[in-house]
Amino acid sequence: MTEHSRQKFKVTRRHVIGGLASIPFAASFTPTFALADAPEINKFIYASSILCGIKLDKSFIALAHQIWGALTLGATDKEKRSWRRMINQISTLPANANSQKINKALRMAGRGAKEQARLLAKVWYTGRIKRKIGPKQSTFEVINYDDALVWLACDFTKPPVTCGGHFGYWQHPFTGKV
């Protein structure tokens, strides 16, 4: 299986999982802001692709809205402007930018940009975001478990509670074929 076809397979499996699961719990993260208030969503997706090192196509638009909503929940206008500054800066990078170039761009994006980028990457990768529930306590809120990017990064597996393949597939080393 070529890298290209493997990527194609992943997207297909993601679509299948999403269609089967139809998990409504992410509805609470439906952004309450008008789209015009958000950074242009394609730019957000492109910057997210660079930060995460995984190409995100337009099938991620709905999830991108959810993640943007989760990242900016309760944010002030000033904080949103700061987010947009970071996203604009990252969007100037080529699609295959490495960690070194990304870190350099983040330094140019100003104070706080690094922490924002870290949070963004973690939320995309894990599908969860940490929330404070008390002065010293916090918990994770789950945005979307099945579409967390770790499952694309770890192409040898898939989100739990999802069929992995034929009985006994696990006895063989991962070869890219499921």
Partner: peptide
Amino acid sequence: FGPELRDRVHTNTA
């Protein structure tokens, strides 16, 4: 970040 992040998650988890 970027491809190094993706590769690290894959390599370590595997």
